[in-house]
Amino acid sequence: MSVPHVLLALLAEGPKYGLQLREEFEAGTGEVWPLNVGQVYKTLGRLERDGLAESEGTGQDGPQKWFRITPRGEEALAAWLRTPPDLTSPPRDELVMKVLVAARVPGTDAHEVIQAHRLYLLELMQQWTRLKEGEARDDLGLALVVDAELFRLDAVIRWLDAADARLRRAVAEPSRPAPVPAPVPQLRRLAARR
């Protein structure tokens, strides 16, 4: 997540103090991602150095110093909003690795491994759904974050379901590609692309 750009977005609403930025950052993102004061001032320092924000008030970082966005900062913010994040290379996902490995380790039931992860993810989704039922009803920022998390976890469960079915089919129809998934060199290649 890009903390500098979220801070720029908050400054685009008007000049603000550092502590105020931290509070608004946490409230605006559903209070799911913590941000410490040191990180706020360090980021503001970098924004100032790059000419994207400027400050007024006493020279020291503190409650008396407030910040505002510069025209260059506004341009940078607009460009960032419209630039897609890099999703081209698959992330080195630990869960994907576990399932790939489970299918190779002798004596390991990959379906049981998949089921354990499925149940954990469902429990996590239940927790997020409780938030949707309660706090997120009156908090748009939190509702959006909760939706994003639920869609993400849902996608992981769908992948587990697909993996489960694919492993079953590979066992039932041995003429198809062998159930042994990606050999080690391929795994290395995937990791090396990161």
Partner: peptide, 21 residues
Amino acid sequence: VTGQTARPPGPESLLIPGKIR
């Protein structure tokens, strides 16, 4: 039945400590 969820902890653990409203 191949499995079922256990009762998950409350949603508080997903939020920043002390921020639950």
